[in-house]
Amino acid sequence: MDALIAKLKTQIIEQLNLEGVSPEDISPDDSLFGEGLGLDSIDALELIVLLEKNYGLKIENPAEGKKIFYTIRSIAEYITANGKA
């Protein structure tokens, strides 16, 4: 799980072009949207594509997406639960 979290942090920083943010700056339990990392709806679309492209996971239910993208740990758990880690 730790290796997957570290990999996800790097992929998210790269995909969302989070300039000046290093993997160490992001806690796996920080909320990604709102108060935490401050991501927005466009970032959510980027994350959906990231999951599909890199892990072959399609998120079609918006309500499900809210839960999955809550933190980096929740994304890692979703990937693991679907056997894509």
Partner: peptide
Amino acid sequence: NNNEQQLTPTAFM
């Protein structure tokens, strides 16, 4: 490269 799939919105916008 992605065969018209998995396109991200930022560059398009």
